[in-house]
Each structure stands twice: as structure tokens, then as C-alpha cells.
């Protein structure tokens, strides 16, 4: 028997440091990059929200406190953009999710040529977003695109006009493009989750006499729920920040009807070159999204604790 003092001896310092630092060594390159190229600029960007930064004005740059936020409180256009963001995000996420789920369920059944079909229906995701935007703008143009004529033939439009220039309908243009572009993301994640459901569960349920609808409700949905929750959360945040399609297709028009917060920031920064004001808006958006995410996470916790 060695002495008790010896057996309780701490690990040598060198080994302790080596052990403790290992995970940091693995994550350091990624972290340094994220901090250097995202976090530091983010902090700078946040500081711009409290400064007067106008690109073409050499006398700008001074601290102005909360002036931008006061201006924001009076800014009708901002509040309209906020409402449009809700509309744009809600409709896009809902439709992407719905069609993505249906697609995933369709692809979960084996059939001849499934691999090819899967590759083809996921293809829109590989299309650069602004190219998708240009292309859909083209499709909605009655002179060079077929969509207005088809919608007219179906009785959905009174005349084969460009819906992108109709204030009532314009938002549906970018939403359609967004749904086309975003379905694959949901389909891929949901398909992966679907394929992870043990098959014998379905067999057991069939033997117990469950019909297809019951099987879907009692097995598929509960198994997918965690994936659905996290995917919708991530997508909601991402889509509210996603201005490419709107900038390319409508540039916020007509009459600001399709202006969302993200595209409004873009306009402030690059049309009016007012980076200070743009940063202030971005900061507000960031806070709103953080609050939204926290709420979702809390809601999930409460539900989990109950269940």
C-alpha cells in the first residue's frame, strides 16, 4: 500500500493542462475565425447604431446616442416593414414546411428511380438565390413569362398582369420564389428524420389495427416533432433575414408593399448609404429574433417538462 497522501496526489500539471486544452485546440481555428470575422464586426456594427455613419459625408462618425432609435420610433416605413416581415416569414416558412413535409413523406416510400427524383426535386437549392429571383421575376412578367397567363386562365387573376407590380399581390411573387427555393431544405431534414424512425414501429401499429392516418399521427409526427421544431426555428430566423429575393424581384416595391426589415436595412445602407441608421434597424431585428428564439426554446422546455 502506498501512502494515502500519494494516492490522492493530483495529476501532474502538464497533463492537466494538456487534457483541458484539447477541445479548445480542436475548436480554436473555427472560433478565431468566427470571432475575428463575425463577432468583432458585429460589435463594430452595433456601435454604428449609436453613431452617425454616412458613407458620403466626411463629417459624420460622431456619437449620437439613441438618436437613430428615436428616429426609428417615428419611422412609418420601418413599422410597415416589420408587418411585411411577419407576413413574408410566416407564409414562406409555413408553405416551405408543408410542401417539404409532403415531399419527404412521398420520398420516404421506395419506388423505382427514387434516387434520381430525389436529386431533381432537391435541385432548386443549388440555384443561387439572386438567380432564382431573376428567373422568377421573369416568369411573372406577362411579356416573357407564362405564369400570368396561366393564373388568368385558372381564374385567379382578372387579367394577365404582372403580380409583382400589383400592390395587393406583389408579396406573393417573392414568397413563391422562396417556397420553390426552400422546399428542399425542409424535405432533406425531414426525410433524414423519417428514415431514422424504426420500421417495426409501423408494423406493430398496423398489427394493432392503426390506419395510415393514425400511424402518421401516433408515430410519424411525434418522432418528427423535435426535428420540425428546430428546423422551423432556424428557418424562421434565417428567412426573416433573407432579403435577396425581394431585392432582386421587387426592390421593396410597389409602394413599399414588399419591403421587409432586412431589405429595408439593405436600402438604408446601400441606396441612402446611411450605415448608422441601417445598423440601428439591424440591431432591433437581432433583438426581436433573439427574443423569438428564447421564447421558442422556453416553450419547448415547458412542453418537455410537462410531457
Amino acid at each position: 500500500m502506498t501512502l494515502a497522501a500519494h494516492s490522492h496526489a493530483a495529476k501532474p500539471l502538464r497533463k492537466r493542462i494538456a487534457d483541458a486544452s484539447e477541445p479548445y485546440l480542436y475548436s480554436a481555428p473555427a472560433l478565431i475565425l468566427i470571432i475575428g470575422v463575425m463577432l468583432v464586426p458585429l460589435v463594430l456594427g452595433i456601435s454604428y447604431a449609436f453613431r452617425d455613419i454616412q458613407l458620403l459625408n466626411p463629417f459624420s462618425g460622431g456619437f449620437i446616442g439613441l438618436d437613430h432609435f428615436r428616429a426609428l420610433g417615428q419611422d412609418e416605413a420601418f413599422f410597415r416593414a416589420l408587418r411585411n416581415t411577419l407576413w413574408w416569414t410566416g407564409a414562406s416558412v409555413f408553405l416551405q414546411f408543408l410542401f417539404g413535409l409532403i415531399l419527404a413523406l412521398l420520398l420516404d416510400k421506395p419506388f423505382a428511380g427514387r434516387g434520381l427524383v430525389q436529386a431533381l426535386v432537391f435541385l432548386p437549392w443549388a440555384v443561387p438565390s439572386f438567380l432564382a429571383g431573376l428567373n422568377w421575376a421573369w416568369l411573372f412578367n406577362p411579356v416573357i413569362g407564362p405564369l400570368p397567363h396561366w393564373l388568368y386562365a385558372l381564374g385567379l387573376l382578372d387579367a394577365p398582369n404582372n403580380i409583382l407590380s400589383d400592390p395587393q399581390l406583389a408579396m406573393w411573387g417573392p414568397i413563391a420564389a422562396n417556397v420553390w427555393w426552400g422546399i428542399p431544405f425542409f424535405a432533406i431534414t425531414l426525410l433524414a428524420a423519417l428514415q431514422a424512425i424504426p420500421r417495426d414501429l409501423y408494423e406493430a401499429a398496423s398489427i394493432d389495427g392503426a390506419g395510415p392516418v393514425q400511424r402518421f399521427l401516433s408515430i410519424t409526427l411525434p418522432f418528427l416533432a423535435p426535428t420540425i421544431a428546430i428546423t422551423i426555428l432556424l428557418r424562421t430566423v434565417w428567412i426573416s433575414n433573407f432579403a435577396d429575393l425581394i431585392v432582386v424581384m421587387t426592390n421593396g416595391g410597389p409602394a413599399d408593399r414588399t419591403q421587409i426589415v432586412a431589405s429595408y436595412i439593405f436600402t438604408q445602407a446601400f441606396k441612402r448609404l446611411d450605415f448608422g441608421y441601417a445598423s440601428a434597424i439591424a440591431l432591433v431585428l437581432l433583438v426581436l429574433l433573439l427574443v423569438y428564439s428564447l421564447l421558442i426554446v422556453l416553450l419547448r422546455q415547458t412542453l418537455l417538462n410537462k410531457g
Binding site: T2, H6, S7, H8, K11, P12, K15
Partner: peptide, 13 residues
């Protein structure tokens, strides 16, 4: 806490 020895040599670390 405690010691593990293999062939009389402490191997904890």
C-alpha cells in the same frame, strides 16, 4: 482518487 499500478508502475496519468 486512488492509484492504479500495472507491473508496479503507477499509470493514473
Amino acid at each position: 482518487s486512488g492509484d492504479i499500478q500495472i507491473d508496479g508502475k503507477r499509470v493514473n496519468d
